[in-house]
């Protein structure tokens, strides 16, 4: 019975590919694996250069911007300094002493004309502004607190990373499965 299931899943021939490989092919597979990792890294770092943001893609983690953004939605950020922040912009900012960046909208803004901007934010779904979320005594945010401004939106995709963060076992299982697939599977 279990043999039949294994056969159905192809597990009985899983290592046959590996056995049939010679040394060159093994090296090739390992290099291929390395290529995938470095491509992903290059895309991420390339986006950082193009968008000028330390984190060009973020996942929405809270419901404070509902019904615009829900938990698990994906936002694309840019942070070009030549485009000043304006009221109504959706900014992703970091607060001292908090690990997780916050995605909220700019509600008030004062600019002194010499690029010293101070502004106040609020979540669309919150009743009050964010002064209670800021560091104790902090009344305003400044451009240095900003990770980026939301310019693009794709729903749901970020749910994958939320599940992986909530259940680390899923993350390791997926990583191991992917690595095994790439290393063991031979292109025919």
């Amino acid at each position: 019975m279990s043999e039949a299931v294994l056969k159905l899943l192809g597990a009985d021939t899983m290592f046959d590919d590996l056995k049939r490989m010679n040394k060159r092919q093994v090296y090739y597979q390992v290099l291929n694996f390395g290529m995938i990792i470095s491509t992903a890294l290059m895309i991420w770092k390339g986006l950082m250069v193009v968008t000028n943001s330390e984190s060009p893609i973020v996942v929405v983690l809270s419901g404070s911007m509902e019904p615009a953004f829900f938990r698990g939605d994906l936002l694309f950020l840019t942070n070009h300094q030549e485009q000043p922040i304006k009221v109504g912009d959706i900014v992703v900012f970091k607060i001292e002493g908090r690990d997780i960046p916050i995605v909220h909208r700019v509600l008030q803004l004062h600019d002194d004309g010499n690029n010293n901007i101070k502004f106040l934010t609020k979540g669309d779904n919150n009743w009050i502004d964010d002064r209670g979320l800021y560091a104790p005594g902090q009344m305003w945010l400044q451009p240095k607190d900003v990770v980026g401004r939301a310019k693009g939106y794709v729903p749901y995709i970020g749910m994958v990373t939320i599940i992986m963060n909530d259940y680390p076992r899923v993350k390791y299982a997926v990583l191991v499965a992917l690595a095994a697939f790439v290393l063991l599977h031979r292109e025919s």
């Binding site: 009221v87 803004l109 002194d112």
Partner: peptide, 29 residues
Amino acid sequence: KELFVYLIAEYVTPNTPNSFNQIVLWDRI
């Protein structure tokens, strides 16, 4: 999917610590 509509008061205040100001007065989803 949604429009976030907001009314802004915009004004300049030279010779003060601020110079350009924007305040949201009203919004609607």
